[in-house]
Nucleic acid binder design. Structure first.
Length: 549
RNA sequence: CGGGGAGUGGCGCAGUCUGGUAGCGCACCCGGCUGGGGGCCGGGCGGUCGCAGGUUCAAAUCCUGUCUCCCCGACCA
């Protein structure tokens, strides 16, 4: 490709409202452009990156026996009503000309299960791995950070169909291993974490996380331990107890900070009340240490029920002064070590010292940096979720009637798994992880081009002709090469090359004609490599190429 | 959904408070110079100031309404 003809609108300045590095650089480098909130076009160079990632994913899913197909983006609403997933706030809904309801797909469990339900009869038809790359539509409440969180994006989603839990485990493991190969091949720093199963239902889930500053997820890390903070569990740091007894007048002190200040105690000596009402209507008072926060996902999982905050009239005691009460089911967070704590006295303006010992214990708090796992302090860092794997079990096969007959002719629901990867997020994560002041430094597996040949001198000059000859020679041996043959100054060409971030840059100018070699620079680290002789360039480039990240 | 901010040539911005008919840098076009880090000189093109209504002799500027986008938080199959 010649830059003089490429649609590559680079910008000197980032968009005024961009915050995330990948947002700024991908726009500046001419890879993507915004169309609306959470709606993005991929321009030619950006699409090459996307397609290279897609191809890596395709190869690895094919390698575990996946069969690529394609399902539509628009679905009859009825199908989603059957699965019980109709009416999510994120779901785009529309009507056709006849007034029939449709939805735009957030994922494809319903459709793929429909096909399997209609076609699979026998255990002999299992297992199956089906996948596709298709647009997903989600009406996100807040799209952000360029291509990191969008309302429309392409996802590779695969689905496994097995006869039982063991089969599902095998399909799950295959994906786990394929994903590891995919992210390694893409050149990302990544790790696998335990995660919440969320609204997907199912019994087990892991996320593949690429650490970076713009990440929306928080991950708790310790040697041998990695978990999404949504589900992470750790030993709390101990609190020192100062001697306090009896009841304490705390008029107007309704927050932890205010109470701690009023009585001269550390927040960790207090109990924080979190009154909720479960789905079934049961009232529960949850207590965590004053310096901790309730983790609503962990709480929901621990209570095995959705819940909502209790209203004041349901609590029946003055909010802000709640303490343990024998009148209502009471749950203490596991991090509340037995001992005395300051809690509300269930009377306006009064706190009192209570002794917690035993009681119903559940782990429902959000871990904080410094907590320990196996004696090691955890760190919490942001990361982008680039892939996830879910065990769905029979959550979709039952409502949608996907079943098979076993050897004895008995009918069973099919066991399913669901596995997603977002190529756009891999691209953005790579930019977040590998960039410098000048621009992007792509991992070579997903760069838009392998080599950028910068031709200095006027178009038509000896330098330009030598650059073109080099460009053509490298192309003939299968390298993806882009030639900067524009009539621009050297500085502009170097600046654009560093923005775009191809792993290897070869410069052909007057000096090259004198020395008979093109200068070679590795983009990552902007490191000078041994020059590439113009005569015999292919071998030299191959050799330089092999050492690049 | 709560809070904050912004819409003025392709990009980044000034002008709005104090109304007088739109400006700067970059980019772009033409000519020339330069040709190894966004170079220089000269000459140009391009915007009914998000949209609608109102006030006024006169609106980018004041008033009302509305749309869109961004950031923080909540949310995030």
């Amino acid at each position: 490709m010649r830059l003089s003809r490429l649609f590559l609108p680079t910008e000197r300045q980032p968009p005024a409202d961009a915050e995330a590095i990948s947002h700024k650089l991908m726009v500046r480098a001419g890879l993507v452009r915004q169309v609306g909130a959470g709606l993005w076009s991929w321009l030619p160079a950006g699409w090459r990156v996307h397609q290279r990632i897609v191809q890596i994913v395709r190869e690895e899913i094919d390698a575990i026996g996946g069969q690529e197909m394609l399902m539509p983006v628009m679905h009859p609403a009825e199908l989603w009503k059957r699965s019980g997933r109709y009416g999510f706030p994120e779901q785009f809904r529309l009507e056709d000309r006849k007034g029939a309801e449709h939805v735009l797909a957030m994922t494809h469990e319903e459709v793929v299960t429909l096909h399997v339900a209609n076609a699979v009869r026998s255990y002999r038809d299992l297992p199956k791995i089906l996948y596709h790359f298709q647009v997903k539509e989600r009406d996100e409440p807040r799209p952000r950070a360029g291509v990191l969180r969008t309302r429309e994006f392409i996802m590779k989603d695969s689905y496994t169909f097995d006869r039982d839990a063991e089969g599902l485990q095998a399909g799950y493991d295959l994906h786990d291993q394929a994903y590891a190969r995919i992210f390694d091949r893409c050149g990302l720093e990544w790790y696998r974490v335990e995660s919440d199963v969320g609204m997907m239902g199912g019994s087990m889930a892991h996320e593949f996380m690429a650490p970076c500053a713009a990440g929306e997820n928080e991950v708790a890390l310790a040697p041998g331990y990695a978990a999404n903070v949504e589900v992470a569990s750790a030993e709390a740091q101990p609190v020192e107890h100062t001697a306090l007894t009896g009841s304490l007048d705390t008029p107007g002190a309704t927050t932890i900070e205010a109470v701690a200040a009023a009585i001269g105690a550390a927040p960790g000596q207090l109990l924080k009340a979190f009154p909720v009402v479960l789905d079934g209507g049961e009232r529960v008072d949850v207590f965590v240490r004053g310096d901790h926060r309730v983790n609503e996902i962990k709480l929901r999982n621990a209570l095995k029920s959705d819940f909502r905050p209790a209203r004041e009239d349901e609590i029946g005691r003055p909010a802000g002064f709640l303490g343990p009460s024998s009148d209502v089911r009471t749950v203490f967070d596991a991090a509340i070590a037995p001992g005395p704590y300051v809690a509300g006295a269930n009377r306006e303006g009064v706190h009192e010292v209570v002794t917690v010992d035993g009681g119903e214990r559940l782990d429902v708090r959000t871990v904080v940096a410094g907590d320990t796992v196996n004696g090691s302090a955890i760190a919490i860092e942001p990361a982008i979720e680039v892939g996830n794997i879910f065990k769905l079990g029979t959550r979709y096969s039952e409502p949608l009637g996907a079943s098979y007959l076993d050897e004895s002719g008995r009918e069973h629901p099919i066991w399913m798994g669901s596995y997603g990867i977002g190529p756009a997020r891999i691209a953005a994560a790579a930019v977040e992880q590998f960039h410098d002041e000048q621009g992007i430094a792509w991992p070579k597996a997903i760069a838009p081009w392998d080599v950028e040949v910068v031709a200095l001198g006027k178009p038509g000059s000896d330098e330009a002709r030598a650059a073109q000859a080099l460009y053509e020679e490298l192309r003939t041996v299968g390298l993806d090469v882009v030639l900067d043959d524009r009539a621009a100054g050297a500085g502009e060409k170097f600046a654009d090359a560093e923005l775009l971030g191809c792993p290897l840059r070869l410069t052909v100018g007057r000096r090259s004609l004198e020395s008979g070699a093109a200068e070679a620079v590795a983009r990552r680290g902007r490191a000078d490599l041994d020059p590439v002789p113009l005569d015999g360039a292919v071998e030299a480039v191959r050799e330089r190429w092999g050492a690049l990240p």
